[in-house]
C-alpha cells in the first residue's frame, strides 16, 4: 500500500474546521504548510469553495480599499456633524511637519494615519470593516503604514492580511468581534491583535513570534469597555483605534525581539470571552455607562438626536 502524497491528501479535503490558533498551527504541521497566511488562504478556499487565486485576488481588493480609506482620510477635513471629530489627522500632520514628533516621524505617522482612517469611517468614508467599522483604522494606520515604510512588496502585504484575518477568525470562533457582545476589547482589542500578528509576519516566519504578538496586544486591553458618546462611532472610538495601533507596534516589536507569551493566544481569547460575558450590558455599546454616561456625554447626546438632512 502506497502512502498518499500530502498534495493528494489536501486535494481530498472539502472543509477545514478549526477551534482556534492551536488547531491551525497543528494542521499546518500535519499538511506541511509553512506559513499561517498559506494556511488561511487554503482555509478560505476550501470552506468557501473558491479557487485560491480568487481568494488572493479578493484580498487585493481589500488592500486597495484600505489604501483608499487612508488616502481619503488624509485628504478630507474629517469633520462629523456632531463636531466631536474635527480634523485630528490634520493636526497630527502639522505636528510632524513642525518637527514636534516625540519619538520620530514614523511613529507619529502611524498615529496620523490611524486617525485619518478612523476619522474617515466616522465621516461616512468608504472603509473596510476589519474586523469592524469601529476599529477599521488600526490595520490601515499601523500595518499599511509600516509595510509601506519598509517598501514591502504588495504580494507580501496581502499575505499579512491573511494572517490578520486568520487571527480575527480565531477570535470570532472562541469569543466575538462585536462591541455589543464583548465590549471594545473585542473590536479594537481584536484589531490590535490582528495587526500585531500581521506586522510580525512581514519580518519573520516564526509562528511563536506571530502568536506572541497577537497575545501581547490582546492581553493588554482585556476588559476594555464599549461606551461611545451618544452611540456614535466617534468618541472614544477614534482615539482607541490609535491606542490599538501603537499597542500593535509595541507588541510586534517585543515578539520580534524574541519575547514570548506565557499564556497561549487561544487562552487569552477565552479569557476575553469570559470577561465579555461578565461585563455589564451598560458597557457594551448601549451608551448607558462609562464615558457615555458622563454629564458632558449626556448633554451632547440630548443635543444630537434629531434627524436633519
Amino acid at each position: 500500500m502506497s502512502v498518499p502524497k500530502k498534495t493528494e491528501v489536501l486535494d481530498e479535503i472539502k472543509r477545514i474546521r478549526i477551534h482556534g490558533l492551536s488547531d491551525a498551527r497543528r494542521l499546518m504541521e500535519e499538511y506541511d504548510i509553512l506559513t499561517l497566511a498559506g494556511f488561511f488562504v487554503m482555509y478560505e478556499s476550501k470552506n468557501q469553495e473558491l479557487p485560491e487565486s480568487e481568494v488572493i485576488s479578493r484580498m487585493h481588493t481589500v488592500l486597495d480599499a484600505m489604501h483608499g480609506t487612508l488616502r481619503e482620510g488624509l485628504e478630507h477635513p474629517n469633520r462629523t456633524p456632531s463636531r466631536m471629530i474635527d480634523g485630528g489627522a490634520a493636526h497630527m500632520d502639522a505636528l510632524i511637519r513642525g518637527g514636534g514628533s516625540l519619538l520620530g516621524n514614523q511613529f507619529s505617522t502611524v498615529i496620523r494615519n490611524t486617525l485619518a482612517a478612523a476619522e474617515n469611517n466616522a465621516c461616512m468614508g468608504r472603509i473596510v470593516a476589519a474586523p469592524t467599522a469601529g476599529a477599521s483604522g488600526v490595520l490601515p494606520g499601523a500595518y499599511l503604514t509600516i509595510a509601506d515604510a519598509h517598501h514591502v512588496a504588495e504580494e507580501r502585504i496581502v499575505q499579512g492580511l491573511f494572517v490578520a484575518g486568520g487571527i480575527g477568525e480565531c477570535i470570532a470562533l472562541q469569543a466575538s468581534l462585536s462591541g455589543s457582545q464583548h465590549g471594545c476589547q473585542a473590536e479594537n482589542g481584536s484589531a490590535g491583535a490582528m495587526t500585531a500578528a500581521a506586522l510580525v509576519s512581514l519580518f519573520s516566519e516564526d509562528q511563536e513570534a506571530i502568536e506572541s504578538a497577537a497575545a501581547f496586544a490582546l492581553k493588554s486591553v482585556l476588559g476594555l469597555v464599549c461606551d461611545p458618546i451618544a452611540g456614535l462611532v466617534e468618541i472614544p472610538c477614534v482615539k482607541r483605534n490609535v491606542m490599538a495601533a501603537v499597542n500593535a507596534v509595541a507588541s510586534a516589536e517585543m515578539a520580534l525581539a524574541g519575547i514570548r507569551t506565557v499564556v497561549p493566544f487561544d487562552e487569552v481569547v477565552q479569557a476575553m470571552d469570559h470577561i465579555g460575558r461578565d461585563m455589564s450590558s451598560s458597557l457594551k455599546e448601549t451608551s448607558l455607562g462609562g464615558l457615555a454616561a458622563t454629564p458632558t456625554a449626556v448633554r451632547i447626546a440630548a443635543e444630537f438626536k434629531r434627524i436633519r438632512p
Binding site: V55, M124, G125, I127, A129, P131, A133, G134, A172
Partner: peptide, 21 residues
C-alpha cells in the same frame, strides 16, 4: 465565519449595523 467576514465588508462608515445594514 469566513476570513472575508473578518476582513470586510467594504462599506461606507461609520457603523455596520446603523449604516451598512
Amino acid at each position: 465565519m469566513a476570513i472575508f467576514d473578518v476582513m470586510g465588508p467594504i462599506m461606507i462608515g461609520p457603523s455596520s449595523s446603523h449604516t451598512a445594514g
